[in-house]
Design a protein around this nucleic acid. Sequence first.
DNA 1: CAGTGAGCGAGCTTCCGCTTGACTT
Length: 773
Amino acid sequence: MTKNLVIVESPAKAKTIEGFLGKDYTVRSCFGHVMDLAKKDLGVDIENGFTPNYIISPDKKKVVTELKKIAKDSETIWLASDEDREGEAIAWHLLQALDLKEDQIKRIVFHEITKPAITEAIENPRKIDRNLVNAQQARRVLDRLVGFELSPLLWRKIKPSLSAGRVQSVAVRLIVEKEEEIKAFKSVSSYRIQADFLIMVNQKQATVSAELNKRFNTKREALAFLESCKTARFVVEDVETKPARKSPAPPFTTSTLQQEASRKLGFSVANTMRIAQQLYESGKITYMRTDSVTLSKLALSMTKEEIIKSFGQDYVKIRQYTTRTKGAQEAHEAIRPTYMNQHSVEKDNSQKRLYDLIWKRTIASQMSDAVLEKTNITIGISNAREKFVAKGEVIKFDGFLKVYMESKDEEDNEDKEGMLPPLVPGEKLTLEEMAGQQKFTQQPARYTEASLVKKLEELGIGRPSTYAPTISTIQKRGYVIKEDRPGFSRDYDLIRLKGGKITEEVKSENTGYEKGKLFPTDIGSLVNSFLIQYFENILDYNFTATVEEEFDEIAGGNLVWNAMIREFYYPFHAQIEKTLENSKKVSGEKLLGQDPKTGENVYVRIGRYGPMAQIGNSESAVKPRYASLLKGQSIETITLETALDLFKLPRSVGSYESADVMVSTGRFGPYVKHLSGFYSLAKDDDPLTVTLERAIEIIEEKRNKEHQKTIKTFTGDELIKILNGRYGPYISYNRRNYKIPKGSDPAGLTLEDCRKIIKETEPSKNKNVKRNK
DNA sequence: CAGTGAGCGAGCTTCCGCTTGACTT
């Protein structure tokens, strides 16, 4: 019989803590929430004071049964879920799911997984905070009501299976509005003047580069300025040196880790989280879903020791950072290495790189400021009022820069500030060359996954555990697409003054190339404008912040949770009803022009299966014709010609093996059809122009792959095949797949063996069919 | 896994936040 059962949320945490507590304590994890609102209907009884209908989450039934068994044999159950709103609710749910009595349980919390912290927690148990639980209930019920009333509205008014919610709809809004901003953006140009001056330093020639403190709006002005400089004299007027300091960035939170891993390592948000999870599970780093920048005392002293050992006493500066993020709950430490003396890990390359980043960031956060010296040199022009300015920067003491420098979203690679030669006021300078380059203002930057997370965090929307899933949801719904887009070439003027002569030339640069950026789709834009029109209050960037304030009131015991929900719900529900009645189905229909052959109107719109083109309408004499838009095309930008091209599909490209080869597009994109087989086109194949040759290549490629996949076939039964798949060898029979028992040699199986395996695994296959849906 | 878009109607979709394996073809 165990005396004490301690329940934490994460199994990795359970393992660590068990080591701290000794044999009187059994530590188990509940794997997060164990209960949730029922999925069918609303899961909330609106008429009865919004009573939630909680059930044990289907995927937690096993855990709950197991915990229940251990709890039965325990004297005291310590509920050690995280110290935040959700954690408090988890404790409360455990009380019910495990059939516990209040006097059997003790609620404890700790912010760091260290022995003193755990011991202290055990010494200071408390009761479950019902106010905090109620704040969570309000959060949960509000999200359910918003999500489960808005989504069905979208099914009826736009397209089935769409979704809307407090978090995802705002994320989509940000991306749509960024695109609108970019569309409205007008680039303007100006002329930036730079000059290189020659001086002698210790009898050696040196160059000083400086920029004019004014930009000219027109080429004419820039030329006039260069003209005036032909005869000008240049004199150093002022040399100003001032000290400057740079401080390190705070330790990582989930959001900042995602941003840095994206910028420095090129990881997607989901990738970063998966790798961090692996590091966490192998005990290399602390918990990776956190909004706190706090380091434990233990971590601080380990870090200090490590800095002294590696860099010396001068490099230490212990700092405690404070979180400024809106709505941060700070239930965990910042993300840091478990042991600071472990400089790297022997893991795969991604884990290694991420660990390295975390180690450096943590170490740097406790290191001294970098001490810099900035120099500004002002250079006067004898026959102009403008000045040239040369900027220099010298590092006097590197401090934290020795290990780590935070990167920025937009690197301004234009000002490379280095060391300047020693100059004194009054010194005359010789102009070597002066150049005026036409510069264009930059359009606003589109969001990457990581910069979207940053923005959401700033708005207080979403939590560390949901950033990655939210980004995946809005892509899965087809609201947003992450892709690369080619840039375009742009001409710019470059004028030069050298050796008393002015030359002009036109050069070209590539600009606007986008890599891994988030773009709204037609559906995303349409859903967004619908929601903004009818539910501006929910889509408001401050909606979450406002309700969070009320959740805090509930947590403080100053507001009754279901009274708050009632205040919100009835007006919201009326909005739903009104929109249901008053708004028409929206499809984003756009008239492109007329079909030259029939004279019928050609439209593009969102159909039941996505963006489509249509010739004629229901009032036309002949039945309307339909065609899906291809990938990369959009209602917004498609032309009449391109839309008409879509109706050329399906097209015959010729014949192969005395059978027709057809090219068309279906639910899963463009494909080739030959005999009874389907062959998907590659990404860069255009179904409208693909040739017979290429089609045959595609057919043969797939046949070849199929062939390589085949380990064994049988002459007795053509339907049974032993194939090599992504997860190893398996048996395929009648379009169903069967696992090969461990230990048997796939190539050595006989037809009889296969039949036996098929027969024996028959009953369990239903599960798989369901899962795939 | 493959071409849909009318109209009927059954039955389904959907939220956010907390946690990992079991499983896939």
